[in-house]
Design a protein around this nucleic acid. Structure first.
Length: 899
DNA sequence: CAGTGAGCGAGCTTCCGCTTGACTT
């Protein structure tokens, strides 16, 4: 039996015993090649090799065994030899069906193969599944393959457009581009938002000495029958909204009116106009699935999605919780009983829901292959019981999961909400109405065990919040103990956080449980989004990229794109739609693309071609902000630009300035920041001012040349080139704050002529460069040991240096002798040696290095074993992660460097 | 957007979803 997860395999092996061999595929074992390096030599020359999909031949995919899975596949092949039947028990969803098919294709077994599915890991469920085998569902496999190919075509065709038009290494994809767009849209709303201010009156009502509580808060809601405006009555433009259906228009109260009214109400009699009470009931929340777990752990524990998943993985592997990547809220019967038992023991029978609760909330595009995330086993261990074994993040996360699961089988919370209106007239004759509301919870039910936390910036009320009013009856007289005019302002919609973005994606049906945390990581790694505290802030590059996609690939970043795709994939899975037709419509265009189809006349291929020609990179990288101020996304990051008096003005844009904080005032200030740097004085020889500045390559000094109005040659000749100011980087020991004029003049005297090579007659100069101080003779250079030598090195010393061969790097230590010499590598024929490195002994043929493994002995290792290690290392060479590329656009870089 | 050691040009960057143990020179 082959399942996907190693932990699952172990568990199932326990249930089934020795008659079965349970193995894990550990996820997918084959995939499209990631890049040219993965493409087998046979296909290297093909025009479609870059995509890994032969688009002109029915979109035939080229599958390769994922390099890091080669060992796993070999193990499985070996295991197959000793059994008489194979059960493909991968997850019961689209991806699982595909993994099963890839296993079949790869293992090519000669024994019977059946498909087996189950939705929960318990002995009865597994035993039942073994008795109910079926065949592979090829339509479902087709649907997965179509999804895979669409994502590849989208990602690998659109990303190169971004490389050419915006910046190298950027990326676009069905999921990440929508995620980025959501964040950008929200920032645009914030930038366009106009704050409104309004006033009302807060009152403290007094119901008399008998009442309990005697006093309670109320707020002014109407004057002369017209509603007083609250924040909700204002639009994002700062204007009052017009009357909407079923809701009359409100009138905003200004400060003067509010103060005057409060004054006129002092000591006036008020009376209860109406009392309306309604029962309050609240059902428990569904048990956790991946998205809700990430959201609640984010809100309650402040974990990032990634941290939540790493902790959940540990809990899962050690048998504390069920599977962590799920979109289902279903509990097994045993789990429901366990939760009910625990609730009864902890809170009493009346706190348990009368009927077992099963939550069938359907998430868009849910595949429901697993159970909800819950404590593992048929009886739950309380947090107290595992406290000795588990701590830190894992303990806190387990506690959260346990509470939520137990609460899900508890009784509804019950109580009462009361709305009271209080009327009176002011001394000025105006009729006023105040409102007060209260909520009392008479039976806490599940709230005793678990209360969901509100999103940051939400103005809602927690489910267990109470506010008590005294017993009030219609007509009852009241007095206002306090009347306080209060000013308020409206707020722009808050930025997305990790939890709220995950929720937004989930609501759109975009992304899968296994990918939510990596989506967040991807959009950060690409420099599209950065975190400011909990908030996700889009970069200016994101504005440029999303602008490009919206204008030129609108369908692809449509929020309905994935939803439509899922419907059409379902049709493929049902066998009512052909995979090739569908892909052809998407890629080559359809003559009559169905309404709402991802296919469109034109098709992706043509669109990419047209856009590569037509998109104006300069326009795409200019984001208008206000007036004539534009943020331009350049090769070195974003900067501000505007035109004044026919001159283009530029200003640096701090990396950590969120787009919505770029107001006209801030921009004005940035434009006015003097670019001059610190003045050091005047060069006595030239009379030019010398300044020290911070540049792109670090601190440097330069001279300010007087504005020489170079008279243009009248007879059509080109203007004389402006003389360039002398510049020089500071030495390592200097800073712009402390450098003196004397030092600066010395620096500016470089390059220094050291002398002339008597052999070639070429001049040798000493200068400071990117890699430090060096000598230059024509095109031949030599590094100097230290900066001071720039001023002191003599011609003789220089000539001596030129006699030495070029040294690569200054730290060239003598090569360490090998620990042992071996024979020739069977693959390359090069001699192999064992060396001792920072991470222990390794074998090398001069090109490839491979660590010795546990059990390999330096003294006893054979040539065969060494060749094997080298071969394994070469196989993985293309797959290991390289050091993350330095990104000039990475928004936080400058700030870090300064800090 | 201060310019810097030779210069040219080929090759690479990139997607989404399944899974963790192996890796780093």
């Amino acid at each position: 039996m082959i399942v996907e997860s190693g932990t699952k395999a172990k568990k199932i092996q326990q249930y089934l015993g020795r008659d079965y061999v349970v193995e894990a595929s550990v996820g997918h074992i084959r995939d499209l090649p990631r890049g040219a390096a993965d493409v087998p030599a046979k296909y290297k020359g093909e025009s479609w090799a870059r995509l890994g999909v032969d688009v002109d031949n029915q979109f035939a995919p080229l599958y390769i065994i994922t390099p890091e899975k080669k060992g796993k596949v070999a193990e499985l092949k070996d295991a197959v030899k000793s059994v008489d039947e194979i059960l493909l028990a991968t997850d019961p969803d689209r991806e699982g069906e595909a993994i099963a098919w890839h296993l079949l294709e790869t293992l090519k077994p000669k024994i019977p193969v059946r498909r087996m599915v189950f939705h929960e890991i318990s002995e009865p469920a597994i035993r039942a599944a073994v008795e109910n085998l079926r065949d592979l569902d090829h339509d479902l496999v087709d649907a997965q393959e179509t999804r895979r190919i669409l994502d590849r075509l989208y990602g690998y065709e659109v990303s190169p457009v971004l490389w050419k038009k915006v910046m190298p290494r950027l990326s676009a994809g069905r999921v990440q581009s929508v995620a980025t767009r959501i964040v950008v849209q929200r920032e645009r709303e914030r930038m366009a938002f106009v704050t409104a201010s309004y006033w009302d009156i807060a009152a403290l009502m007094d119901a008399g000495a008998e009442a309990s509580p005697r006093q309670f808060p109320a707020r002014l809601v109407a004057v002369d029958g017209t509603r007083v405006a609250t924040g909700r009555d204002f639009g994002p433009d700062g204007q009052l909204k017009a009357a909407a259906r079923g809701k009359e228009a409100a009138r905003a109260l200004d400060e003067a009116s509010a103060r005057r009214l409060a004054e006129a109400l002092q000591g006036r009699d008020l009376a209860v106009e109406s009392v309306e009470s309604k029962p309050y009931t609240r059902k428990p929340y569904a048990p956790f699935m991946t998205s809700t777990l990430q959201q609640e752990a984010g809100r309650k524990l402040r974990f990032t999605a990634d941290r939540t998943m790493r902790s959940a993985q540990r809990l899962y592997e050690n048998g504390y919780i069920t599977y962590l990547r799920t979109d289902s809220t279903t509990l097994s019967d045993a789990a429901i009983q366990a939760a009910r038992t625990q609730a009864r023991e902890l809170y009493g029978a009346e706190y348990v829901s009368p009927q077992p609760r099963q939550y069938t909330r359907k998430v868009k595009n849910a595949q429901e292959a697993h159970e909800a995330i819950r404590p593992a086993g048929e009886t739950f261990r309380t947090p107290g019981e595992i406290a000795g074994e588990v701590d830190g993040d894992d303990f806190r996360l387990y506690e959260l999961i346990w509470q939520r699961t137990v609460a899900s089988q508890m009784a509804d919370a019950r109580g009462t909400t009361v709305s009271v209106r209080i009327a009176g007239s002011a001394a000025t004759g105006e009729e006023v109405t105040f409102a007060a509301s209260g909520r009392t919870i008479t039976f806490a039910g599940f709230l005793k065990a678990y209360v969901e936390t509100l999103d940051e910036g939400s103005d809602g009320q927690a489910d267990d919040a109470e506010s008590r009013l005294p017993e009030l009856t219609k007509g009852q007289p009241l007095t206002a103990a306090e009347l306080t005019p209060e000013g308020h302002t409206t707020n722009p919609p808050s930025r997305y956080t990790e939890p709220s973005l995950i929720k937004a994606l989930e609501d759109l049906g975009i992304g899968r449980p296994s990918t939510y945390s990596s989506i967040i990581k991807t959009i950060q790694d690409r420099g599209y989004v950065w975190k400011k505290g909990q908030a996700l802030v889009p970069s200016w590059v994101a504005f440029a990229v999303i602008g490009l996609l919206e204008h030129h690939f609108d369908r692809l970043v449509d929020y309905d794109f994935t939803a439509t795709m899922e419907d059409e994939l379902d049709a493929i899975a049902q066998g009512t739609q052909q995979r090739t037709d569908w892909l052809s419509g998407f890629y080559f265009g359809a003559d009559q693309a169905a309404e709402g189809s991802v296919a469109r006349a034109g098709g992706l291929k043509k669109l990419v071609g047209v856009n590569l020609e037509e998109i104006d990179a300069r326009e795409i990288n200019s984001v208008p902000v206000f007036d004539d101020v534009v943020v331009r996304v350049g090769r070195y990051g974003p900067y501000l630009e505007r035109v004044r008096d026919g001159q283009s003005q530029r200003a640096n844009l701090p990396d950590d300035l969120p787009p919505d904080e770029l107001t006209p005032e801030v921009a004005e200030q940035l434009f006015s920041v003097p670019q001059e740097g610190r003045s050091l004085g005047v060069d006595p020889v030239t009379g030019h001012e010398i300044v020290a500045k911070e540049g792109r390559y670090g601190p440097y000094v330069t001279e300010i040349l007087p504005d020489t109005e170079a008279p243009a040659e009248s007879n059509g000749k080109k203007k004389a080139a402006k003389p360039k100011p002398r510049t020089s980087s500071l030495f390592k020991s200097m800073t712009t704050d402390t450098i003196t004029l004397e030092d600066a003049l010395r620096l500016l005297s470089l390059p220094r002529l050291v002398g002339t090579d008597p052999e070639s007659g070429e001049e040798i100069t000493a200068q400071n460069g990117r890699y430090g101080p060096y000598l230059k003779k024509g095109t031949d250079s030599r590094s100097l040991a230290d900066e001071e030598q720039l001023f002191t090195v003599t011609l003789e010393e220089a000539l001596e240096l030129y006699k030495q061969p070029k040294q690569r790097g200054r730290r060239t230590a003598a090569a360490t002798p090998p620990l042992r010499e071996l024979g020739k590598d069977s693959a390359t024929g090069k001699p192999m040696v064992i060396k001792d490195g920072r991470f222990g002994p390794y074998v090398t043929d001069g090109e490839t290095n491979a660590s010795l493994r546990k059990g390999d002995d330096v003294e006893k290792i054979t040539d065969e074993r060494a060749s094997e290690l080298l071969a394994e290392r070469r196989a993985k060479a293309g797959t290991t992660k390289k050091a993350p590329a330095r990104k000039k656009a990475a928004p936080r870089k400058k700030a870090e460097a300064k800090g």
